[in-house]
Design a protein around this nucleic acid. Structure first.
Lengths: 217, 217
DNA sequence: AGTGGTTCTGACGGATTCGTCATTTATGAC
DNA sequence: GTCATAAATGACGAATCCGTCAGAACCACT
């Protein structure tokens, strides 16, 4: 991106976007704490924004929460795409994404809790991560590496496995995240028809570093 | 007056239990509709019970909901045990339970929604279905039929697969429940180390009839 | 600096919900 | 039948929460 002083247009728009972002950010931390059902006033205070501002941007709390979760999902999805951009082999892309997300349950506990507290959304085909999983799986199928009859089932099983991992780590803090995640990855790959030896190898490849995802400001 | 034989136990206790049961039953249908957040008054009215009675039995709505969900889970778990009591082979017990529960997403949509709306509880190791799954899986492992290194992982994957099924059926009403459920069952079994041929066969065996579960009165 | 448009703000009235409590009803012992 | 106890009941005051609105603050443009 070139350094263009585009501040010419919209200072007003930027102000509006800023308070909207503040609301969303506040909502994200509140969701991460599992405490939906807070009064609107508490959200606006956490966002350091006037009470009335809420209604300038959203009509209901649910609307705000939806936007907040979408934001988290999209930001994380973008990060994943970025981290796996260098990998060409479809199976490896899938495996890497899954393994990174499994590790995220420990590295980013708040993000993990957002996932767990919004399971249906994660499983649902519309939002955030599911389309990316579908894309990756479809690519592997097209390349003749996965043998799955029904991509939707595969997507659902992937999401489900992710949740299962999160729940496992939540209930047993001493569990080895890398070890467990990689083994489940291997199981998943085998479930998708990848030969045993290759499944094992792919799920043990070195991983790119997972930095903290940065929600867009 | 004249006859006082088997009137042993307190009529008072029975009255108390009855209103408690009424509250729980009302809460169950409300939960099934996905509408937590109703005022207490609405629950007591649905239960045909005085407003004040609520506080004779519970301190918070969450307490009531917890009891209600536990009740549903236990009732369904008991039903499952009953239906699979005649089967001796551990793998078949596991597969039958899973397949029955998959079908339940269509046959008992309300129960299905209870599951989906309370995912974390279903996944959690403490309550309801998870202990039974653990028991069945452990039995299959002990019999040398499952090759899983970590029973907790297997339990979590089972629960997650169940949720994935529910979500799939919710999002695509035309999807074939039996077909999809049985295929996922087969995948799960193979993931647990069951040989391909046997996995396929076991996940296609005839099933006992799934009648509507009857919560204890 | 003036003007018109946009967003921000917090206080307020109205509505909802809570939890208590005095009273009533059902039960059991005598 | 009388008394004592446990549970049920719903009306009421307290508390919470919502959504609006009138004015302040901010911004672009001339």
């Amino acid at each position: 991106m070139s350094s263009a002083p585009t501040q010419r247009v919209n200072r007003l728009d930027r102000r509006k976007a800023r308070t909207r972002a503040a609301l969303i950010a506040a909502a994200q931390t509140i969701i991460a704490e599992g405490r939906t059902n807070v009064p609107i006033l508490e959200i606006t205070q956490a966002a350091d924004v006037g009470m009335g501002s809420f209604y300038n941007h959203f009509e209901t709390k649910e609307q705000l929460f939806d936007a907040a979760i979408d934001g988290v999902m999209d930001a994380y999805g973008d990060l994943l795409d970025q981290l796996t951009a260098a990998i060409e082999d479809p199976t490896e892309v899938f495996a890497s994404s899954f393994r990174l997300t499994g590790r995220l349950h420990r590295k980013e506990p708040e993000l993990s809790r957002v996932l767990l507290n919004n399971v249906l959304r994660l499983l649902s085909a519309e939002d955030g991560l599911a389309p990316r999983a579908r894309r990756d799986i479809a690519a592997a199928v097209a390349a003749g590496q996965f043998d799955v009859e029904d991509v939707d089932v595969a997507v659902a099983m992937t999401a489900a496995a992710l949740l299962a991992l999160g729940q496992l780590f939540l209930g047993d803090r001493d569990r080895d995240v890398e070890e467990t995640t990689d083994r489940v990855t291997e199981d998943l790959l085998r479930m998708f028809g990848v030969p045993r030896a290759r499944a094992r190898k792919v799920s043990r490849l070195p991983l790119p570093d997972l930095a903290a995802p940065r929600p867009a400001d």
